[in-house]
């Protein structure tokens, strides 16, 4: 089994729910190593001093905050120690807010909340939250850092998403380009067209239909190369002409059927299939 990233409890009111957090996402991007193509050996990073060009030992590397103009303020671990959040094994739920109030841009990493030791309080919270349309908001400390978190329930399972702090979101007012929207005018007709386009393309979200085609293609290249083959690239289909052929064939068949019906209501044309002689009964 995968290891939990955090173990502790959710607390709210007088209740404490022992839980474990497991990653909800397993990233599958492919990573490459850097290789020197002359010696076929790995390329390594080394930390060197700008002054001497020599490698610097780990114990001599300290943190410096850039004040500009090559001025740095040195910050030691001792400076930071008093600020470290108190080690805590609790996610304190402070409030339950409407899910729609949360800006989706704030969602950061996602975790599955797994009941630890006793499942009952977990099930109680999951059931109580279900259908409320609300998410629990709280804070907790993981790996010496304090996180803001949102807890959701689907009726059976609880999940947790860490949230970025609101002041970490980019202020839209500071981004160039949006001002062009100020002078746009939209006619009712244009809006109607755009809306019908949205509706025509509306369907239920099917997550299983989306996959990382790029990663799959890279994996295939690796597989083929590993097997000693030259990678084969499938060309994008370029057979646009066929659509026109097909459309004209369809038009032609329709015309033939109509002509056959108009000129020989009772005869069977060899080319056009004979339509039903009389209107068929409409069924329930």
């Amino acid at each position: 089994m995968a290891r939990p990233v955090w173990t502790g409890s959710i607390s709210f009111g007088m209740v404490s729910i022992p839980i474990r957090l497991m990653p909800a996402v397993k990233k599958k991007s492919i990573s490459f190593n850097q290789i020197d193509d002359q010696t076929m050996s790995r390329v390594r990073y080394r930390k060197v001093s700008e002054a001497t060009g020599e490698e610097v030992a780990t114990e001599h590397i300290v943190k410096g905050y850039d004040m500009g103009a090559e001025n740095y303020i040195l910050i030691t671990d001792d400076d930071l120690a008093p600020l470290a959040p108190a080690k805590s094994k609790e996610i304190g739920l402070e409030t339950f807010v409407p899910a729609d109030d949360l800006n989706p841009l704030m969602f950061d990493a996602s975790y599955l909340i797994v009941p630890d030791k006793t499942p009952k309080p977990y099930a109680l919270l999951a059931t109580a939250m279900a259908g409320s349309g609300r998410v629990g908001i709280g804070r907790f400390v993981m790996r010496q850092k304090e996180y803001l978190a949102a807890i959701r329930s689907d009726g059976t399972y609880l999940t947790l998403s860490t949230l970025v702090f609101p002041d970490e979101l980019v202020d839209i007012g500071t981004v160039d380009g949006f001002e062009a929207l100020d002078d746009v005018e939209i006619s009712d007709k244009e809006l109607l067209m755009a809306k019908s386009l949205v509706e025509a393309l509306s369907e239920d979200f099917q997550p299983s239909e989306y996959r990382d085609e790029y990663r799959l293609a890279v994996e295939k290249i690796i597989e083929q190369k590993a097997a000693g083959q030259t990678p084969v690239f499938e060309d994008a289909p370029a057979a646009k002409a066929k659509v026109i052929d097909l459309a004209s064939a369809l038009e032609a068949s329709l015309r033939e059927a109509k002509e056959a019906r108009a000129s020989h209501p009772s005869a069977t044309s060899a080319a056009a299939k004979k339509p039903p002689a009389k209107k068929a009964r409409k069924s329930a």
Binding site: K242, D245, L246, A249, L250, S253, L254, A257, K273, P275, P276, K279, A280, R281, K282, S283
Partner: peptide
Amino acid sequence: TTWDETLTIARLFRVAMQQL
């Protein structure tokens, strides 16, 4: 939609299957 019309559409697909 009448049954005739449903048949018309089905026959168009038949032509498409032949063409393709």
